[in-house]
């Protein structure tokens, strides 16, 4: 099939950027979206032009690198990451608009590549259990109810791709932070630092310039790992409790 691509090009963080039009034919419906871009890039290189920069790595939907807005939808028309979006979801002659994630906290670095290090900094603010290597007790000394472990895993499977921020009209990182806070908050290992963790991570989130949650759940709708927005309520509860009732 033949597609008309309207791709965002931006040479660096200071560049204003613009859309560039490309027409690509011979696209197979079994290609992934990124493979289609590979083909386009090969053609650009053959013309000595600079290829479109985009983040990608594992190409199996788990590393969370790929990050683009395709026709106004984070990661593209189906749920899952961009690398797991297949061209069978597009039709011949379609115009496809490809944009980078847009958020103040995710500045564009080049074409479709954005800087998501704000996510790392939020995790550095408290997304861990303070335990040093060595000296841990036997793993079975700490029973964890199966349901808690499952729910913690529901939250922990976040891949940190940033689609939640991209899709939110307020560029809010609440689903990401909620997943991180809930993963440890639901497990016994996370209890000693629970109050401090949620306060520190939320404070960092605010400081990084993400927007606020207006409970519209666009994040949940595009999350490649289907992380439910229930976790946001859980974090709200955790945060309200921790901030209103100071620990001793």
């Amino acid at each position: 099939m033949k597609l008309h691509l309207k791709v965002w090009r931006q040479s660096g963080p200071q560049d204003k950027g613009r859309f560039e039009l490309h027409t690509i034919d011979g696209v197979s419906s079994d290609m992934s979206f990124l493979e289609m871009l590979d083909v386009l890039n090969d053609r650009l290189l053959a013309q000595g032009k600079s290829p479109i920069a985009f983040d990608h790595d594992c190409r199996e939907g788990i590393c969370g690198s790929c990050s683009m807005m395709i026709n106004g939808r984070a990661h593209g028309p189906t749920r899952g990451t961009t690398c797991q979006t297949y061209m069978r979801n597009f039709h011949d002659g379609q115009t496809v608009v490809i944009e980078p994630w847009r958020a103040r906290a995710f500045p564009v670095m080049c074409d479709l590549v954005v800087d998501r290090s704000a996510f790392d900094r939020i995790q550095q603010a408290g997304g861990y259990v303070s335990v040093n290597t060595g000296g841990a007790q036997d793993g079975n000394c700490l029973p964890v109810p199966k349901d808690d472990a499952e729910r913690a895993m529901d939250a922990a499977q976040c891949i940190g791709c940033g689609a939640c921020v991209a899709a939110c009209k307020n560029a809010s990182a609440m689903l990401f932070v909620a997943a991180k806070v809930s993963h440890l908050g639901l497990l016994p290992q996370g209890q000693p630092e629970r109050a401090g963790r949620v306060l520190a991570m939320v404070a960092k989130m605010d400081e990084e310039g993400f927007g606020n949650c207006t409970n519209q759940y666009e994040c949940e709708a595009v999350c490649p790992k289907s992380i439910p927005a229930d976790f946001i309520a859980r974090m709200n509860r955790d945060h309200l409790g921790s901030s209103l009732i100071p620990s001793e």
């Binding site: 036997d138 793993g139 499952e150 440890l184």
Partner: peptide
């Protein structure tokens, strides 16, 4: 030791109904 260490870090390993 690895399993113990990872459990202590909060890695959500699959559990049985008894919590083990």
């Amino acid at each position: 030791n690895i399993i113990d260490q990872c459990v202590a870090q909060g890695v959500p390993f699959a559990r049985e109904y008894g919590g083990q």
